[in-house]
Structure formats: structure tokens, C-alpha cells
Design a protein around this nucleic acid. Structure first.
Lengths: 197, 197, 197, 197
DNA sequence: TATGAATGAGCCTTCATTCAT
DNA sequence: CATGAATGAAGGCTCATTCAT
């Protein structure tokens, strides 16, 4: 019970913080904001995280690696093209399933990306790694054009990210489901060799 | 004379602010930082801008629309594919020619993008508009696949932005010149119909 | 049994608190510090003392009156001069025998001395009283010069306290044993009338 | 004028801080207290000192070295005994002339003494040094008994300090002027060899 | 009875903005 | 006009104390 209560506090703070960070950014969100939104005291925060920075970093790291796992899972098996298509679809789906998490990842990038190298030293996998791996395998099996793996991967990721952004910022009003296919079609046409695997 | 002096102060502040915003973000940059770096007094800032927020917004708007002009100019004439290739190359070149401006645009997006709709009401053109226009024309002329214009445009922009980001954050170490071609090849293969115009 | 257990907790807290107060001062020592060092919970402290202030005051009062008893005992019997010499020697010895208690008394003076008048109303004897009494008896018996009793007593006490301080703060490096004699010689030469009692 | 205003602010803060530190100690005095008492804003403090700690340390260092100069001056010339007598008289006089400064030096010792070694590295002279020097010269000229110079000096200083303390805390009610002579008589009788210089 | 998580007032410090000079 | 000292609201964080378990 006390264990649950503790988990509750952590989770309430987690959720409140992600929502606020997603709406206003880390710097513009105050400890008071988070505490009030989570329904806990300000001091309670410091039992679980050492500072606001630490909270933001921990949250970003958790979401970032969770995203990696989800993407890898969503990719499933099959040809690189099929897997990339599923990655794209899943990513677009995330925006509707968990808009706060998506916005948080988008908005906090520049605050938190500097800490990503530290993640990698811990052997953790980033979403970028996941896409890179798929692209790399596609190149190896000959189904994806033989070019700089990172460049192709970032091309895919950029297409995803910017389309999501344009949706989130309200410029793009078409349904995300359709977008996913349009983007995937264009990208995969560009990346594929056309050879069967 | 006094006009020139004022312009000088404005420009010194402009450059100093862009550099600092690019390095630390808007929130983390103080008026004192900017004033010191620009070699002017803190009060002097308020003669030209109403607040730090206003300075950041004005700077972003200026850079954002300047980028639009540059992209349009860089695009030149010819087929949509040729113009997009030039846009990509020019964007990658910006990072090396003016890294502070590039970083500033990248980092300040989320602080400043909410004000972009206001820009558009003023009839100003954004870089996104430029790419959209080119894509739209490509669709019209049949050289680019007939799909959601915004989606294709953001696919191109995302590829540019994320590849630049991966370079700026040190993940991508290949020279930007090569990157530009790799990315352009992949994208244009994906977007083109293959028909001559 | 439960009484013993309680005493144990009390004593553990007492010792831990004195050590910490001696090292960092009362204000800089937290309840958490004390609880951790004593191996008890934070709440447990409030079973024995009403507040941190109360703990510090009670500890100081206890040490202060314990010091009085020790000094009186150490003084033994004989001429005032002999007794003062023994008091000086004993005080210097305390620093080596129980450095934490000595430092605590030194450091907490100014936090706790305001409460000393309260002690005296309770009829408790302070170390100052002990030295005053000896000096007073010396004056009465003619072995100590006839001057303001308090002034002479504080002269003795000051000599003791400052020499200990200079040792504790590392300025004085000579062994405390030698110091005791040097100081006692000088003081007693100054206080004595030279008449046999 | 602006120079005077600035000096005023500094001095107002200085005086207010010394008074408050003297009454409640450094830790118990808040920035708000000082600002209010000095009639300046809280932020103004940070233009002149980096932190409250820094303020306290700077103030202590200034008073401590000022005290050194005053003591050296007050000592004047003549035999070591005469000079020590004047030092004692002057120190007792300080309590009446500037009670806040005296109390501040007394109360802040333990907060600030750890920084004294740093002072000495800067070649600054402490009050202890002044008394040590006089005692040392007395030993050299044969007018003061040949014993540990530091021990004798701290005996003198202790007599001064503790007598002042007993006055400040209200235990000693005799007039300080008389005290000075009583203490000086006793001390000098104890330190002197009796030989003419 | 013991525990230690939770509370929240209050602290030090920062910094955008103002305004007397 | 320019300056930069002064302002003071607001932020992150600490910690003595309480109380549910």
C-alpha cells in the first residue's frame, strides 16, 4: 500500500511534469506548477529527483528509451521497407495515442539531447539507433540503396518528426493516418533499390 | 550619423544575441550576457526591443523570413527537382557558412514557432512555404508525385533539418557536402514521377 | 528493558549530535544528519526533545554543568593556586580526551550562552562559577590578589579558552601538556600575592 | 554623487549587516533582514558581494584587519608591558565605542575564523599577530618571561576576550575602565620578568 | 512505539525591467 | 540618449516538523 502510494506519487509527478513540459517547455515550467498539477507538495519532488533538471533529464531518458523499444517492437519482422513503414505508422499513431509524450519528446529535444551521449555510454538504444539499424540491415540485404546509413536514417526520422510537428502546430490538418502512408510511400520509394530481398 | 550609430548598436546586439541564443537558448541567455557581448548597456536594448522575448521573436522572425528569401533565391529556376536539390544544398551550406544562424533557427523553433502564424497574417513567407510552393509546382507540372503537398514538403524539410541536427550534435561526422547529395538523391527519387517536364 | 532501549537511543543521539554540532555548528547540522549518524529515525528525535533547538540547548546545558562538576572535582583541595593549576591542566586535557565535547562547548557558546541565566535560576553551577569560587576563596584567604573576582576569574578562563582555541584551529602546534604549565605559571604569577596561606 | 550614493549603499549594508550579525549571528540573519535594515533592496546586496557568506567573510576580514591596525596603533611605543597595557585598554574601550563591531567580532569568530588562514596568505596581519609580536619583542628584550610566545599571547587575548564577553552577556557589571586595569595588572604581573629594559 | 515520506514556509539567489543621472 | 545601479517578484531548493502506517 505504501509502495503503491509511493509509486502513485512518482507517477503523478511524472505525468504532470510530462504534460507541463510538453506544453510550456522545461524552463518555463516551475516546480510549483508540477507539484500543484500532480497534487503533491513541492518538497515531495525532491525525494525522487535531485532537481528539476534531473527530473526533466530522467523523464526524457525514460521516454526516449521507451520510444526505442516501442519502435523496435512496432517494426516487427520482414523486409527493411516493411519495417520502416510500420515504424512510421507507429510514430504517427503515438501522437494521437499519447500526445503529451509526443510533444514532450519533440519540445525537450534541445534541452535533453546533450545528455543522450551519456545514455549511449550506458549501452541504451535511442530511437535513432533503431531506425539506423533497420536501414543498415536494408542496405546489407540489398533492399535499400547503398548510401550513408545515418543520412538515410535521419531522412526517415526527419520526415516523421517534421510531419508530426506540422500537425502538432496546426499547419497540417489532414488526418495523421493518411499522412503516414503518404510519407512512407515517398520515403520508401526513395530508399528502395526495387530489388526483391 | 546617429542613425548609423543606432544601426550599429542594433546589429551588434543582433549578432551577439543570435550567437548566445544559438549556444544556450533564449531562456538561459540573460540581458546582461547580450549587453556585455554586444558591448552596449543593458538599458540600450530596450530602446530597440520591448523585451527579451520581443528581441528573440524579432530575431527569429527576421532570420526565418531571411531564410525564406535565401531559399527561394537559391532554388533558382528549372524543374521542381532541380530546385529542391539546390534548396537542400543551400541549407546544408548554411550550417557551415553561418553556424550560429543555423543553430539559432534550430534551437529557437519551439520557442518561436507559435508566433509564426502571426507572421503569415502579415503576408510573410516562411521557409516551409517556399518548399511547399516548389513541391506544389512540381505536382502541378507532373514531375512530383501527386500527394499531399504539405506532407511531401515536410518530408523534404525534415530530412534537411534532422540531418543538420545530427551533424550539429556530433552524431553525423561525414562532410555536409556529401550528405546533401545523399539526402537529395534519396528524397528526389521518392518524390519524382520520373516523367520529364 | 524498554527503558534501556530508550536510553540507548538517547545516548546515541546525544553523541552523534555533539559530534556533528562540534564539527559544523548547530545551524548547519540537520535533523537528518543527526538521525542518520545516530542510527535512529528522524521522528524518534522528537520523542526525547521538542525541537532541534531544544536538543542543542539541552546538550549544551548538560555538557556545561558536567564541565562544572568535572572542574570542581579536578580542582581538588589545597590552596587556590594549586586548585587553579589543576583546573587549567584538566581543561587542556579535556581537549585530548574528548575533543568533540570540547569543540562543542567552544562552538556553541554563542548559540547557547543566552540560556545560561536560565540555568542559574535553576541553581545550577557553571564552569565560570567554579573558577570564580576558587578565585574568591583565594582572595579571602589572602593568597590571591584582592581585585574584582569576576575579572580575575575570566582572565583565567580566557587564557584557557583562547589557548585551546588556538590549538583547535591549528595555530598553536605545541603539545597541550606543555601549554598548560606555561599558561598556569604565567597566570598564577599574576594572581598570587606570594603569601603562604 | 553617484559615487557617494554607491558608497552609501555599501556602507548602509555594511553597518546593518554588522549589527544584525552581532545580534543574531550570520546564519540566523536573512538577506531580507539586512536589506530591510539597510533600506536597500535584496538584489542590491549582490552587486557588492557574491553571497551572504561572502558578505560575512568580507565584513569579518575587514573588521579583523582593521582591529589589527587599531591595536598596533593603540599599542604605541615603549616597553612591551606598556604596549600590552594600552592594547588591553583600547580593546575594552572598543566595546563602548562600537559595541556592534565588538559583538560581531566575538560572535562571528567561529563562522569566520576558518577563513583567517587565507588572510594570512595575503600577508595580512591579525590581531593575534599584533599581540604575538609585542610579546615576542618583550621576550627578546628580556622584559617578558621566556616562554612560548603564542601561549602567552593567547593568555593575554583570552583575558581580554572573556572579560569582554562577560560584560556583553551581562554577567560582569563593573565598569569596563576599571576592568581593563585590573586585568592588565594581573596579566602583566604574570608576564613580566621584573627586569628593567 | 518507530518510521520516514510528506509538507510547505522560508531561504538565497537571479534577472528582466526601470529610471535617475 | 546612454548608462548601469537598483528593484523586487519569482524561482529552485532545504529542512524542521508532523503523522499515517
Amino acid at each position: 500500500m505504501s509502495k503503491d502510494a509511493r509509486s502513485d506519487a512518482r507517477n503523478k509527478v511524472r505525468d504532470a511534469a510530462i504534460a507541463l513540459f510538453a506544453q510550456k517547455g522545461v524552463k518555463a515550467t516551475t516546480i510549483k506548477d508540477i507539484a500543484r498539477a500532480a497534487g503533491v507538495s513541492e518538497g515531495a519532488l525532491y525525494r525522487h529527483w535531485a532537481s528539476k533538471e534531473d527530473l526533466a533529464a530522467a523523464l526524457f531518458a525514460a521516454e526516449y528509451t521507451a520510444l526505442s523499444h516501442s519502435l523496435r517492437e512496432a517494426a516487427g519482422t520482414g523486409s527493411a521497407a516493411e519495417r520502416l513503414r510500420r515504424v512510421i505508422a507507429w510514430a504517427f499513431g503515438l501522437v494521437e495515442a499519447a500526445p503529451d509524450r509526443a510533444r514532450f519528446l519533440l519540445l525537450s529535444q534541445h534541452d535533453a539531447l546533450p545528455l543522450v551521449p551519456a545514455l549511449m555510454k550506458d549501452g541504451l538504444e535511442t530511437p535513432v539507433d533503431v531506425v539506423c539499424a533497420i536501414v543498415g540491415e536494408g542496405i546489407a540485404e540489398g533492399s535499400i540503396v547503398d548510401a550513408d546509413r545515418e543520412a538515410l536514417a535521419h531522412t526517415v526520422i526527419g520526415a516523421i518528426v517534421l510531419n508530426i510537428q506540422s500537425h502538432v502546430y496546426g499547419r497540417q490538418t489532414a488526418p495523421l493516418g493518411t499522412l503516414a502512408d503518404t510519407v512512407a510511400d515517398a520515403l520508401l520509394r526513395g530508399l528502395s533499390t526495387g530489388k526483391e530481398t
